[in-house]
Amino acid sequence: MNTILVKTFGGLSKKYYIRQFFFAALMAVLFFWIGSTANKTHPENSMPWRLLVCVPLYPYSRFVYESIIEFIVGDNVFFVNAIMMVIVKIVTMIACLMLAPLIAPIGLAYLYFHHSRKSA
């Protein structure tokens, strides 16, 4: 059982996981702040509790997203408007955060098989 956890949840580099976890936590704090200021009458309902599940899974969902984009784009470089690129980046980050429970299992399965093949 321990090897399954190491091959899946320990499959990403610590640097990558910490970086992605930081952005997920930052977005969660932002959503909490927005919810608490907008919901003054019932502040106990301001915390979207599913974020507690989404934040630790976000690095794995982002890994899946970036792998798909890397497969599609390859080594090509695109020169686009910086404002548009930032908006697209923020939208994809929010989508990966909110859909993390659905996307992350794909990344975890890939990491498990990748590290199983590597160790065999």
Results as ranks from 00 to 15, higher is better:
Leu51His: 00
Leu51Gln: 05
Leu51Asp: 04
Leu52Asn: 02
Leu52Gly: 09
Leu52Val: 15
Leu52Cys: 04
Val53Pro: 00
Val53Ser: 09
Val55Phe: 01
Val55Cys: 06
Leu57Gly: 01
Leu57Tyr: 02
Tyr58Arg: 14
Tyr58Leu: 13
Pro59Val: 05
Pro59Leu: 02
Tyr60Thr: 05
Tyr60Val: 02
Ser61Lys: 00
Ser61Met: 02
Arg62Asp: 12
Arg62Lys: 13
Arg62Ala: 13
Arg62Gly: 13
Phe63Val: 13
Phe63Ile: 13
Phe63His: 10
Phe63Leu: 06
Val64Asp: 03
Val64Arg: 05
Val64Phe: 06
Val64Gly: 03
Tyr65Ile: 13
Glu66Ile: 06
Ser67Thr: 12
Ile68His: 03
Ile68Lys: 02
Ile68Pro: 01
Glu70Tyr: 07
Glu70Ile: 00
Glu70Leu: 08
Glu70Asp: 13
Phe71Met: 11
Phe71Val: 01
Ile72Glu: 08
Val73Ser: 06
Gly74Asp: 13
Gly74Asn: 11
Asn76Trp: 08
Asn76Ser: 14
Asn76Val: 01
Val77Ser: 01
Val77His: 08
Phe78Tyr: 07
Phe78Gln: 05
Phe78Arg: 07
Phe78Ser: 02
Phe79Gln: 10
Phe79Asp: 04
Phe79Tyr: 11
Val80Met: 09
Val80Arg: 09
Val80Thr: 10
Val80Tyr: 06
Val80His: 03
Asn81Asp: 11
Asn81Trp: 13
Asn81Ala: 01
Ala82Gln: 14
Ala82His: 12
Ala82Asp: 11
Ile83Pro: 00
Ile83Asn: 02
Ile83Glu: 10
Ile83Leu: 10
Met84Val: 15
Met84His: 02
Met85Phe: 14
Met85Thr: 10
Met85Tyr: 02
Val86Lys: 08
Val86His: 08
Val86Tyr: 04
Ile87Phe: 09
Ile87Tyr: 00
Val88Tyr: 07
Val88Leu: 10
Val88Pro: 03
Lys89Asn: 12
Ile90Gly: 03
Ile90Ala: 11
Ile90Val: 14
Ile90Met: 06
Ile90Lys: 03
Ile90Asn: 13
Val91Gly: 04
Val91Tyr: 04
Val91Cys: 02
Thr92Gly: 06
Met93Cys: 08
Met93Gly: 15
Met93Val: 15
Ala95Asn: 07
Ala95Thr: 08
Ala95Glu: 05
Ala95Leu: 12
Cys96Trp: 07
Cys96Ser: 14
Cys96Tyr: 04
Leu97Gln: 11
Met98Gln: 14
Met98Gly: 14
Met98Ala: 14
Ala100Arg: 04
Pro101Leu: 02
Leu102Pro: 08
Leu102Asp: 12
Leu102His: 11
Ile103Asn: 13
Ile103Leu: 15
Ile103His: 06
Ala104Asp: 12
Pro105Ala: 12
Ile106Pro: 05
Leu108Tyr: 07
Leu108Ile: 14
